[in-house]
C-alpha cells in the first residue's frame, strides 16, 4: 500500500513540477507572466473547469465517463437565466439574485440523475448515454430559451459581482467557491463511507456488490453529483460572462474538463484519482491558456495542444502504472 501511495504522490509532484517548469519557461520569455496579476488571470480562467472536474473525477473513478456536462451546464444556466429574465412576467415576483444558484444546482442534479437512471436501469454504457444526452440536453437549452440569448442586463449585478468583487486579497468570490468545492470533494471522497465506496466500485465493479456496496445507488449518486456541479458551473458561467447563450454556453466544456481530470492522474480504468491531482491538472491547463496569447501563439493551436497533452498524460499514466505493478512484484518477491 505504501508503494502505491508513493506512486500517486509522485504523480502529483510530477504535475506540480510541470506547472513550475512551464511557468518559468514562459516567464523567461515574458517576465510579466510571473506576476501576481497574472496569477489572478490564471485563477479566473479555472473556476468553471475546476468545479466540473470534481464531478467528472468522481465519475471517472467510478469507471464511467460523463460527456454531457457541457449541455447540463447550458440547461441549468438557461433555466436560471430565463427565471431572471421573466420572473416578473410569469410569477409577478422578483427572484432574489442568489435564487439562480440553488435552482441551477437542482436542475443540474436532476439532469445528472436522468443520465444515472438510464445507465443503471437499462445497464447501458455511460459513454453512449451521455453522448446522447449531450445532444438531447443541448436541444433542451434551445427549446426552453426559444433559441434566444439572455443578455447581460437580465443577469443580476450581485451575481456578476461574484466574479469581480473579492472578500480578501483581490481574489474574486468565484475562485473561493471553486476551491471550496474541491475541498468538499476531498472530504467526501476520502472521509465518508459513500466516497470510499465510489473508489471500491471503480477499482473492482464485480466485487463491489459482494462488499455490500449498493452499486446502482452509488452510480446514481455519482452522476447526480456530476450534474449538480455542472449546474453550479452553469450559474457561475452566467456570473463570469454575464450572459447565457443557448448554443455557446458550455459547449466544448467536456473536453476541457476531461483533459484536466486525465492530466490530473485519474485513471480511466477506474478506482484511481485524487482531488489534488485534478486541481493541479486544472491549473496546468489554465497556465497554458493564459500563456498562449501572452506569447502571441495563435489560438488556433490551442486544441492541438490540449489533444497532445491528453495523449501524453495517458502514456505517462500507463508507464507509472506499469512501474507500480513492477515495484509491487519486486516487493512481493
Amino acid at each position: 500500500m505504501t508503494t502505491l501511495r508513493k506512486i500517486f504522490l509522485r504523480r502529483e509532484a510530477g504535475i506540480a513540477v510541470m506547472i513550475v517548469l512551464f511557468c518559468l519557461a514562459v516567464g523567461a520569455v515574458k517576465p510579466q507572466f510571473l506576476t501576481l496579476d497574472q496569477l489572478r488571470i490564471i485563477l479566473l480562467l479555472t473556476p468553471l473547469v475546476m468545479i466540473g472536474a470534481m464531478g467528472q473525477m468522481l465519475v471517472i473513478v467510478a469507471r464511467h465517463v460523463d460527456l454531457s456536462i457541457g449541455s447540463m451546464l447550458g440547461v441549468s444556466a438557461m433555466v436560471s437565466g430565463m427565471l431572471y429574465r421573466y420572473d416578473a412576467t410569469w410569477f409577478g415576483v422578483d427572484m432574489p439574485w442568489w435564487g439562480g444558484i440553488p435552482i441551477s444546482i437542482v436542475v443540474g442534479a436532476l439532469l445528472g440523475l436522468g443520465n444515472g437512471l438510464l445507465i443503471t436501469l437499462f445497464r447501458l454504457p455511460a459513454i453512449i448515454v451521455t453522448l446522447g444526452t449531450l445532444s438531447l440536453y443541448r436541444g433542451l437549452t434551445f427549446i426552453i430559451s426559444n433559441a434566444k440569448q439572455i443578455d447581460r442586463q437580465w443577469i443580476p449585478s450581485e451575481l456578476k459581482g461574484l466574479a469581480q468583487t473579492s472578500p480578501i486579497m483581490g481574489i474574486p468570490w468565484i475562485i473561493f467557491i471553486a476551491f471550496g468545492v474541491a475541498l468538499a470533494t476531498y472530504f467526501f471522497a476520502m472521509h465518508t463511507r459513500v466516497g470510499r465506496q465510489i473508489f471500491a466500485l471503480g477499482s473492482n465493479p464485480v466485487a463491489a456488490p459482494l462488499r455490500g456496496i449498493k452499486v446502482n445507488q452509488v452510480t446514481l449518486l455519482v452522476f447526480a453529483i456530476s450534474g449538480a456541479l455542472s449546474g453550479l458551473a452553469g450559474i457561475l458561467y452566467a456570473s463570469r460572462w454575464g450572459f447565457v447563450n443557448p448554443s455557446n454556453t458550455g459547449s466544448g466544456f467536456e473536453f476541457q474538463v476531461i483533459a484536466a481530470v486525465v492530466i490530473g492522474g485519474a485513471s480511466i480504468n477506474g478506482g484511481v484519482g485524487t482531488v489534488l491531482g485534478t486541481v493541479l491538472g486544472v491549473l496546468l491547463l489554465g497556465c497554458v491558456s493564459a500563456a498562449l496569447p501572452l506569447l502571441g501563439i495563435p489560438g488556433t493551436s490551442q486544441a492541438a495542444i490540449y489533444g497532445a497533452v491528453i495523449l501524453i498524460a495517458l502514456v505517462i499514466d500507463r508507464s507509472v502504472r506499469q512501474q507500480g505493478i513492477a515495484s509491487l512484484k519486486r516487493a512481493r518477491a
Binding site: P125, I128, V129, S135, L136, G139
Partner: peptide, 15 residues
C-alpha cells in the same frame, strides 16, 4: 433544437 433532441433521443432509444 428539436433535431438535436430527436437525434440524442434516438441514440438512447436505439441502444
Amino acid at each position: 433544437a428539436v433535431q438535436l433532441v430527436v437525434l440524442g433521443g434516438l441514440l438512447i432509444v436505439a441502444i
